[in-house]
Amino acid sequence: MLSVIHMESKGDSVLPMPNLPAELITKILLKLPMKYLLQFRSLSKSWLLLISSPEFVKNHLLLSATNKNYTHHRVMIKTGNSNHDIKDCSVSSLLYDSVTEAFDLNYPGKKRDDILGLLVLSMD
């Protein structure tokens, strides 16, 4: 899989985005949250290869984890007795907004590759 991406990044007229080499497409995609990237894997084969490459995943995770405004950091809150009563909210919203909205965590019930690190908060 990686070898294909390597070949592509050396070509002149590189897809996925017209006219842009893979290196520059990567710079743009690294600015997008994971949700969009999961969607954009289904654009075409070259997008799937680029976004699924271990190199890209590693760089995206690194950027998200070191984002100084905590844009991609979430806090998970258990709101009921059931294991499924979990809400989550944005850390940047907690820090910078007057009101923070918590959402039901749409947990697919299987492994989530995009969660790194877990902070447990307990309130009396």
Binding site: P16, P18, I28, Q39, S44
Partner: peptide
Amino acid sequence: LKNKSVRAVREMLKITNDL
């Protein structure tokens, strides 16, 4: 690209779906 559907992005960037 944010919030755009897959169909919309394909059209905007002239991406041919080969999947």
